[in-house]
Simulated scan of single mutants.
Amino acid sequence: MSDWDFLHDMHDRGYSADDIAAAAACGYAPWEAKYIDRQWAEEQLEGEPQDTAASIQPVGSREGFPFSILEQTEIFLDLVDCAERHFENTGRYLQVWGELGEIYAEIKFGLRRHATHAPGSDGTIDGKRVEVKTISPEKASDHVMVKSQGNFEKLLIIRIDRHFQFQGKLIDRSQLSGGAGKYLKGRLP
Protein backbone atom coordinates (compact mmCIF):
# COMPACT_ATOMS: atom_id res chain seq x y z
CA MET A 1 0.00 0.00 0.00
CA SER A 2 1.43 3.39 -0.94
CA ASP A 3 1.46 6.23 1.55
CA TRP A 4 -1.16 8.03 -0.58
CA ASP A 5 -3.76 5.24 -0.88
CA PHE A 6 -5.73 6.91 1.91
CA LEU A 7 -6.75 9.61 -0.62
CA HIS A 8 -8.62 6.98 -2.63
CA ASP A 9 -10.13 5.67 0.61
CA MET A 10 -11.32 9.19 1.43
CA HIS A 11 -12.99 9.46 -1.98
CA ASP A 12 -14.65 6.07 -1.46
CA ARG A 13 -15.89 7.19 1.97
CA GLY A 14 -17.53 10.29 0.47
CA TYR A 15 -15.13 13.02 1.59
CA SER A 16 -15.30 16.28 -0.37
CA ALA A 17 -12.62 17.38 -2.85
CA ASP A 18 -11.54 20.10 -0.36
CA ASP A 19 -11.17 17.52 2.43
CA ILE A 20 -9.10 15.29 0.13
CA ALA A 21 -6.93 18.24 -0.91
CA ALA A 22 -6.38 19.15 2.75
CA ALA A 23 -5.35 15.58 3.54
CA ALA A 24 -2.96 15.56 0.57
CA ALA A 25 -1.36 18.80 1.78
CA CYS A 26 -0.82 17.58 5.34
CA GLY A 27 0.05 13.99 4.39
CA TYR A 28 -2.37 12.04 6.57
CA ALA A 29 -6.01 10.93 6.60
CA PRO A 30 -8.59 12.55 8.90
CA TRP A 31 -9.07 9.30 10.82
CA GLU A 32 -5.34 9.37 11.66
CA ALA A 33 -5.79 12.78 13.31
CA LYS A 34 -7.18 11.13 16.44
CA TYR A 35 -3.59 10.35 17.31
CA ILE A 36 -2.82 14.08 17.22
CA ASP A 37 -5.90 15.26 19.12
CA ARG A 38 -5.60 18.99 19.85
CA GLN A 39 -7.66 18.88 23.05
CA TRP A 40 -5.53 16.07 24.44
CA ALA A 41 -2.32 17.95 23.56
CA GLU A 42 -3.60 21.14 25.20
CA GLU A 43 -4.52 19.21 28.34
CA GLN A 44 -1.03 17.70 28.47
CA LEU A 45 0.55 21.16 28.14
CA GLU A 46 -1.72 22.81 30.72
CA GLY A 47 0.37 24.93 33.07
CA GLU A 48 3.43 24.82 30.82
CA PRO A 49 4.90 28.12 29.60
CA GLN A 50 3.69 29.03 26.10
CA ASP A 51 6.27 29.19 23.30
CA THR A 52 6.54 32.29 21.21
CA ALA A 53 8.14 32.55 17.78
CA ALA A 54 11.11 34.31 19.37
CA SER A 55 11.71 31.45 21.81
CA ILE A 56 11.88 28.64 19.23
CA GLN A 57 15.40 27.24 19.40
CA PRO A 58 17.03 24.52 17.31
CA VAL A 59 17.00 21.12 18.99
CA GLY A 60 20.23 19.16 19.11
CA SER A 61 22.10 21.30 16.64
CA ARG A 62 24.15 24.46 16.50
CA GLU A 63 21.97 27.37 15.34
CA GLY A 64 20.07 25.14 12.92
CA PHE A 65 23.15 23.39 11.54
CA PRO A 66 24.22 19.85 12.46
CA PHE A 67 27.27 19.65 14.72
CA SER A 68 29.19 18.11 11.81
CA ILE A 69 28.12 18.33 8.17
CA LEU A 70 30.49 15.44 7.39
CA GLU A 71 28.77 13.28 10.02
CA GLN A 72 25.37 14.40 8.67
CA THR A 73 26.45 13.39 5.15
CA GLU A 74 27.50 9.96 6.42
CA ILE A 75 24.17 9.57 8.25
CA PHE A 76 22.33 10.59 5.08
CA LEU A 77 24.20 8.03 2.97
CA ASP A 78 23.60 5.33 5.59
CA LEU A 79 19.87 6.12 5.67
CA VAL A 80 19.60 6.05 1.88
CA ASP A 81 21.50 2.75 1.80
CA CYS A 82 19.23 1.31 4.51
CA ALA A 83 16.08 2.44 2.66
CA GLU A 84 17.38 0.95 -0.58
CA ARG A 85 18.31 -2.36 1.07
CA HIS A 86 14.90 -2.52 2.76
CA PHE A 87 13.21 -2.07 -0.61
CA GLU A 88 15.37 -4.74 -2.24
CA ASN A 89 14.62 -7.14 0.63
CA THR A 90 10.87 -6.54 0.99
CA GLY A 91 9.64 -4.78 -2.14
CA ARG A 92 8.27 -2.06 0.17
CA TYR A 93 9.62 1.42 0.65
CA LEU A 94 10.76 2.53 4.09
CA GLN A 95 8.67 5.61 4.87
CA VAL A 96 11.45 8.06 5.74
CA TRP A 97 11.03 10.44 2.79
CA GLY A 98 10.43 13.70 4.65
CA GLU A 99 13.47 13.31 6.89
CA LEU A 100 15.66 12.21 3.96
CA GLY A 101 14.49 15.25 1.98
CA GLU A 102 15.31 17.63 4.82
CA ILE A 103 18.73 16.11 5.47
CA TYR A 104 19.46 16.33 1.73
CA ALA A 105 18.36 19.99 1.87
CA GLU A 106 20.80 20.61 4.74
CA ILE A 107 23.68 19.10 2.80
CA LYS A 108 22.93 20.29 -0.74
CA PHE A 109 21.16 23.63 -0.18
CA GLY A 110 22.45 24.72 3.26
CA LEU A 111 19.05 24.46 4.99
CA ARG A 112 19.19 25.60 8.60
CA ARG A 113 16.34 23.70 10.22
CA HIS A 114 14.04 25.13 12.85
CA ALA A 115 13.35 23.27 16.07
CA THR A 116 11.22 20.15 15.76
CA HIS A 117 7.54 20.94 15.10
CA ALA A 118 8.16 24.68 14.66
CA PRO A 119 5.17 26.08 12.75
CA GLY A 120 5.24 27.89 9.41
CA SER A 121 8.35 26.58 7.68
CA ASP A 122 11.03 23.92 8.01
CA GLY A 123 14.04 26.22 8.19
CA THR A 124 15.96 28.92 6.38
CA ILE A 125 18.28 29.12 3.38
CA ASP A 126 20.24 32.36 3.00
CA GLY A 127 17.97 33.99 5.58
CA LYS A 128 14.73 33.12 3.72
CA ARG A 129 12.08 30.92 5.38
CA VAL A 130 11.78 27.65 3.44
CA GLU A 131 9.15 24.91 3.34
CA VAL A 132 10.55 21.53 2.20
CA LYS A 133 8.31 19.03 0.38
CA THR A 134 9.68 15.64 -0.58
CA ILE A 135 8.28 13.57 -3.44
CA SER A 136 8.84 9.86 -2.86
CA PRO A 137 9.50 7.20 -5.50
CA GLU A 138 5.93 5.96 -4.95
CA LYS A 139 4.46 9.11 -6.43
CA ALA A 140 4.13 9.50 -10.18
CA SER A 141 3.43 13.23 -10.08
CA ASP A 142 6.03 15.97 -9.68
CA HIS A 143 3.42 18.30 -8.13
CA VAL A 144 3.19 19.25 -4.45
CA MET A 145 0.67 21.25 -2.46
CA VAL A 146 1.35 23.46 0.54
CA LYS A 147 -1.03 25.43 2.70
CA SER A 148 -1.11 29.05 1.59
CA GLN A 149 -1.23 30.20 5.23
CA GLY A 150 2.28 28.78 5.77
CA ASN A 151 4.92 31.29 6.81
CA PHE A 152 7.53 30.62 4.12
CA GLU A 153 9.19 32.62 1.37
CA LYS A 154 10.51 29.75 -0.71
CA LEU A 155 9.47 26.18 -1.43
CA LEU A 156 12.14 23.52 -1.81
CA ILE A 157 10.87 20.47 -3.68
CA ILE A 158 13.02 17.37 -3.32
CA ARG A 159 12.39 14.40 -5.65
CA ILE A 160 13.65 10.93 -4.76
CA ASP A 161 13.38 8.57 -7.72
CA ARG A 162 13.01 4.79 -7.69
CA HIS A 163 16.81 4.44 -7.92
CA PHE A 164 17.19 6.55 -4.76
CA GLN A 165 18.64 9.46 -6.70
CA PHE A 166 17.84 12.94 -5.36
CA GLN A 167 17.17 16.22 -7.12
CA GLY A 168 15.86 19.48 -5.76
CA LYS A 169 14.58 22.85 -6.88
CA LEU A 170 14.15 25.98 -4.78
CA ILE A 171 11.13 28.00 -5.92
CA ASP A 172 10.11 31.49 -4.84
CA ARG A 173 6.65 31.58 -3.25
CA SER A 174 5.49 34.12 -5.85
CA GLN A 175 6.02 31.49 -8.57
CA LEU A 176 3.57 29.01 -7.01
CA SER A 177 0.09 28.69 -8.49
CA GLY A 178 -3.20 28.97 -6.61
CA GLY A 179 -2.32 32.20 -4.79
CA ALA A 180 -5.90 33.10 -3.81
CA GLY A 181 -6.85 29.60 -2.62
CA LYS A 182 -6.29 27.56 0.51
CA TYR A 183 -3.33 25.78 -1.11
CA LEU A 184 -0.40 26.71 -3.26
CA LYS A 185 0.87 24.30 -5.90
CA GLY A 186 4.43 23.78 -7.00
CA ARG A 187 6.02 21.51 -9.55
CA LEU A 188 9.47 20.10 -10.00
CA PRO A 189 10.27 20.66 -13.67
Results as ranks from 00 to 15, higher is better:
105 A>R: 10
103 I>V: 14
126 D>H: 15
27 G>W: 05
12 D>R: 15
143 H>G: 01
177 S>V: 10
1 M>Y: 03
13 R>F: 07
19 D>N: 06
114 H>Y: 13
79 L>P: 07
57 Q>D: 08
61 S>K: 11
7 L>N: 05
61 S>D: 10
145 M>K: 14
125 I>Y: 09
33 A>S: 13
91 G>N: 06
74 E>S: 13
101 G>K: 04
18 D>L: 11
51 D>T: 11
133 K>R: 11
175 Q>F: 02
81 D>C: 06
144 V>H: 04
5 D>P: 00
52 T>P: 09
124 T>Y: 09
109 F>Q: 08
151 N>C: 01
37 D>R: 00
23 A>P: 05
178 G>C: 03
141 S>M: 04
80 V>S: 04
132 V>R: 00
71 E>C: 07
5 D>F: 07
33 A>M: 12
82 C>S: 09
67 F>H: 07
102 E>L: 05
21 A>S: 06
70 L>E: 14
1 M>R: 08
50 Q>H: 12
34 K>A: 03
110 G>Q: 05
73 T>M: 05
128 K>R: 14
117 H>K: 13
74 E>R: 15
128 K>G: 01
67 F>L: 02
31 W>A: 01
11 H>C: 00
15 Y>L: 10
71 E>T: 15
93 Y>E: 07
84 E>I: 03
121 S>N: 13
101 G>Y: 08
177 S>P: 05
16 S>I: 07
62 R>D: 08
186 G>C: 02
55 S>T: 15
20 I>E: 12
162 R>C: 06
184 L>D: 10
118 A>T: 12
39 Q>P: 00
187 R>E: 12
168 G>L: 02
125 I>V: 15
44 Q>P: 10
103 I>Y: 09
118 A>W: 07
169 K>Q: 15
80 V>T: 13
75 I>D: 05
164 F>W: 15
177 S>W: 01
185 K>Y: 14
141 S>A: 00
133 K>C: 01
58 P>S: 00
179 G>F: 04
7 L>Y: 09
24 A>M: 03
8 H>L: 01
51 D>R: 14
177 S>D: 03
80 V>C: 11
181 G>K: 09
147 K>T: 10
35 Y>H: 13
126 D>V: 06
116 T>S: 13
182 K>M: 05
1 M>W: 08
35 Y>M: 06
40 W>R: 12
186 G>H: 12
150 G>D: 05
51 D>H: 11
76 F>S: 06
65 F>I: 01
170 L>W: 06
